[in-house]
Simulated scan of single mutants.
Amino acid sequence: MRVLAAALAAGTLLATAACSGGGDSPGAASGTASTVAERPPAAQRTTPSSTPGGELTKAGARSALITESDLEDDWNLVKDPSTWRDSLLLGDVDAAEFLTGRSDAQDCKRLMDSLYDETLLGSPSGASAVTGFEQGDSRLYYQVAAYEKADLDQSMEWLKSLPSACDEFTLTGGDHGDRTVQVVERTLPEEGEARQGLTVSVKGTSDGDPVTLTLDVAAVQVGANAITVTNGGLDGADHDSTDAAVAQGTPRLTEVLAGGTPKPTPSGVE
């Protein structure tokens, strides 16, 4: 009798399972009972604060900034890099030098203005953070920021056009007379979804003496976010430091967007 009762109970369970989750129809295989069983309890479910390509917060932007340890050589952190301005970059572009006319001249003017006020990719639409470092007469400006995706895409395309559109031109006016400007493309580490590097040199005079301001310019895109680097001075641009900023900074931004917190770079690590 016990054997018979056990068999009847097993048959009842099989029949119940067939009614609730069995059958040949697709809907039956993905029923509510199955969905609930696979979903962990609410206490075990977690929602990351951000995902790759997610929204950059102010705290996240600050966390994504590089430090002195991410750079080579003897860079020192400064308190307020937003006050940096070099008047050698100010002036009007001599449009008469351009074969294609006014359009290219306007692009070159935009480049010089954006280098002066550190708006290389335009104004951020979301969170942003900046930091800066000095080494002798050279300065390195580093920004992490969120933008409108379409605007950022256009800005990256604009940067890519500059070595061809601008190449070499004359900057007039200002306090330094006529200056010769050269824009040369340079290769950056393979980081981010898109990247563009430039070296911009401005030859002119300061207090009657000939000077050359050389700046490395780098922009790396990660979704609707980007890092920008401007590095150089009257003593030239340290290309290795520009590359280090890109190579160390882009993974930090990517990790922040994935909901993580980058660990500090150990002192002495290149």
Rank of each mutant, 00 (worst) to 15 (best):
4 L>W: 15
5 A>H: 15
6 A>D: 03
7 A>D: 06
10 A>G: 14
16 T>K: 09
17 A>T: 07
17 A>H: 14
18 A>R: 15
19 C>S: 12
20 S>K: 04
21 G>Q: 15
22 G>C: 11
27 G>C: 05
27 G>D: 11
28 A>P: 13
31 G>Q: 11
32 T>E: 06
33 A>Q: 06
34 S>I: 12
39 R>F: 02
41 P>C: 03
42 A>E: 15
45 R>C: 09
49 S>E: 09
50 S>F: 01
56 L>C: 01
60 G>S: 03
66 I>D: 00
70 D>V: 05
71 L>I: 08
75 W>L: 10
76 N>P: 01
79 K>A: 14
80 D>S: 07
85 R>A: 05
85 R>K: 10
87 S>R: 11
89 L>T: 01
91 G>H: 02
91 G>K: 02
91 G>P: 11
93 V>Q: 00
94 D>E: 14
97 E>L: 14
100 T>V: 15
100 T>E: 10
103 S>F: 10
106 Q>S: 13
106 Q>Y: 07
108 C>G: 03
110 R>W: 00
113 D>H: 01
115 L>H: 00
115 L>V: 14
116 Y>I: 03
116 Y>T: 00
118 E>L: 06
120 L>K: 07
125 S>H: 05
127 A>S: 15
130 V>N: 07
131 T>M: 06
133 F>V: 13
134 E>A: 10
140 L>T: 08
141 Y>W: 05
142 Y>R: 11
143 Q>T: 09
144 V>E: 00
147 Y>K: 12
158 W>Q: 07
160 K>S: 04
162 L>Y: 06
163 P>C: 12
163 P>E: 12
164 S>N: 09
164 S>H: 13
164 S>G: 14
165 A>Q: 11
165 A>V: 08
166 C>P: 09
174 G>D: 01
174 G>R: 00
175 D>F: 12
178 D>H: 07
180 T>Q: 05
181 V>S: 07
182 Q>M: 07
183 V>P: 04
184 V>A: 13
188 L>K: 11
189 P>Q: 06
190 E>T: 05
194 A>T: 00
198 L>C: 07
199 T>A: 03
201 S>W: 03
202 V>I: 10
202 V>T: 04
209 D>K: 03
210 P>N: 03
211 V>I: 03
212 T>I: 09
215 L>P: 01
215 L>G: 06
215 L>K: 07
215 L>E: 14
220 V>T: 07
221 Q>N: 02
226 A>K: 00
227 I>V: 02
229 V>N: 01
229 V>L: 03
230 T>L: 05
232 G>D: 08
233 G>S: 06
238 D>A: 13
239 H>K: 15
243 D>P: 04
243 D>N: 09
245 A>K: 03
245 A>H: 01
251 P>S: 08
253 L>E: 00
253 L>F: 09
257 L>C: 13
258 A>T: 08
258 A>S: 09
260 G>Q: 11
262 P>C: 15
262 P>Y: 12
262 P>T: 08
264 P>S: 13
264 P>Y: 03
265 T>P: 14
267 S>C: 06
269 V>D: 13
269 V>S: 13
